[in-house]
Design a protein around this nucleic acid. Structure first.
Lengths: 346, 346
DNA sequence: TCTCCGTAGGAATGCGCTTCCACGATAGAC
DNA sequence: GTCTATCGTGGAAGCGCATTCCTACGGAGA
């Protein structure tokens, strides 16, 4: 029953085997406004089954003029921040007959544009840009331009992070989260802060620094710019930035790393330097990466529901057709105090 | 210069604007055996640029009879094991004009078959099955059957993990790695072992347990089956399995978790139980997940070059055309002793 | 019995592109 | 100088499918 002509089975093969026309076979398999008689439909389905027919998605896309492909562009899929978002997207996509094409810029944000072009070539119905926006006008302009073209082609674009582009956006409240964190840390009695700030051009990093400074300011605490050290948004970046800070560590009582991955690097650097956390120094991160929840001492951080972020982005993709104006969803973080900062004085 | 008709620009638009035929426009843009005169080629390229032309990949796929899409199917993209492999794949794909479609089975291995069908519909030129094979005949049979069909359609399949299917495979030497680890642990003086074994049906987990037992055996040490606890292949699985073991922890001096993620969960469980590692108990993992390298105490583990695994898989995809027989690449792990086990007696 | 309408099935068209084939022109061989 | 390769170009077929349009058929109403 499962004879298999060499090469792909086409709808014509199915139709021939069922003894019906192409049109009928198509209608039987995909449903349509038109109805197909029960006997014929059965014949077609049986034929398709026995031939292991899988409709050629390219041909369907051509005929229908649309695809079921969604692009997901991240900066680094190995980074748990992005892989969590990706997991959220994949889970939301489950059962929606959508295929997700993954793009990884390898931390070169200008490559987002290349992926946008490639995904336009695929006639993707949407693309999710998961990475932080940059403070880099040439790149941003090129991206904006390419987004226009993509949308003009009928595609939908969803950004995650900052509302910087006129597209559907899942805004992550970095500023607010960092502000809350600062407030809590001051509440714990910390006063002299250092910040491992990430790349300055990365708006996610910058927003967190700004928010943190703002939160300190509201509590009447100053952040000395000399104690704000920039570095890569990675474990090694955190390690390195922390090492820089360690020269003057005596003047500090708490360090905020703008993400957990950096915080872990910083923790290692502190340990190598003989510092004990939180006894000698408080340390806080951002994101609450689940893989990192078991580091010891446990990181005080700002919890971001990253999988939900991904899922929300995907929902925006699905519902895009019903909207004419870009929509914004805000996702808030929640401060989680753990052992990497001293216990509450209460 | 950048006027943009609404909807997609087609090759016909480009040809018309350049005042040449469709055939010439196609040849100028994509190269071909036939050459196009310099002046005409320039005209075509200029037209394409000014119209923001991006070739319809679906149409190209139809006409050419092949695509540049490669599928990557993992069990859970949020798991650092898989996201590292994915990163390796993405990096290797860089610059090869290949688009990667991501599939996530959400830890339901039977869904691999569904993805295979979907990717066959896309006429993917290859698919990488990154997850462990299972000891589950119905599922394995269905998979084998679908792989046959996929390959008969001209696609190439690459598996990562066990050589269990007649396809190109990146074999991970789980057994060997676990054996070496056992030897080293015995060398450190440990004698009474417990194992957090993961799901029994998962061959990766099972191989590691077998290898570990084998290694112990070679050193004349027995592994009491009562101390082999199965559980999920996740952090929580490790935590839970460890909790089970903790009742009889007095009889053990070292625990091997079959992957790092479980080891970290186990470490948390031990800590909650008041045990100090490595003073009260040695603990070892497997994989050497980079995100987890900074846990404290640092994990003794078996380092797997996961990004290289992904990259190797991708290379197999690229070189598939030149082979007729399935090829196998073996990737070995390397024992890394760290602070979660006691220092060498030497 | 005849006409009209609703319906199921089939033929034909077109989606955007690659590529085979044909054609004319130019260059090289005799 | 004519004859045959060679090369650049255009024409047109066809990839696999959805869909529109058309036809044939059958039942209901007159």
């Amino acid at each position: 029953m499962a004879e298999q002509p060499r090469g792909s089975v086409t709808l014509m093969d199915v139709a021939a085997r069922a003894g019906v026309s192409l049109a009928t076979a198509s209608r039987a398999l995909n449903g349509s406004t038109r109805r197909v008689g029960d006997d014929l439909r059965e014949r077609v389905l049986a034929a398709a089954r026995s031939l292991n027919y899988a409709a050629n998605a390219q041909a369907q896309a051509m005929a229908r003029g649309r695809t079921n492909v969604v692009g997901l562009v991240v900066h680094d899929i190995a980074d748990p921040y992005f892989s969590s978002i990706a997991a959220g997207v994949m889970e939301a996509a489950e059962g929606h007959q959508v295929l997700v094409t993954l793009g990884s810029t390898l931390r070169r944000p200008e490559r987002e544009v290349d992926y946008l072009v490639a995904l336009r070539g695929q006639r993707s119905r949407a693309v999710i840009l998961a990475g932080s926006r940059m403070d880099d006008s040439p790149v941003a302009d090129a991206l904006r331009r390419e987004i226009d073209i993509f949308e003009n082609d009928g595609g939908n674009v969803v950004a995650i992070s900052q509302k910087q582009l006129p597209v559907d956006t899942v805004v992550i409240e970095n500023r607010l989260g960092a502000r809350d964190l600062a407030t809590e840390l001051v509440g714990l009695g910390y006063r002299r802060f250092g910040v491992l700030a990430g790349p300055d051009a990365l708006l996610t990093a910058r927003d967190r620094v700004h928010g943190f400074r703002e939160g300190l300011g509201r509590s009447g605490v100053d952040l000395d710019p000399a104690f704000v050290v920039h570095g890569a948004f990675t474990r090694d970046g955190g390690h390195q930035a922390m090492s820089t800070l360690l020269d003057r560590i005596g003047e500090l009582d708490c360090v905020f790393a703008v993400n957990d991955v950096m915080a872990v690097g910083a923790m290692a650097a502190a340990r190598e330097h003989g510092l004990e956390i939180p006894r000698d120094l408080g340390l806080a991160g951002f994101d609450d990466i689940s893989t990192l929840r078991d580091v010891n001492p446990a990181l005080t951080t700002v919890r971001l529901p990253l999988e939900k972020v991904g899922a929300t982005a995907f929902e925006l993709v699905l519902s895009a057709a019903e909207r004419t104006k870009p929509s914004t969803r805000r996702i808030k973080g929640e401060v989680v105090l753990r052992q990497s900062t001293r216990p509450s004085p209460a």
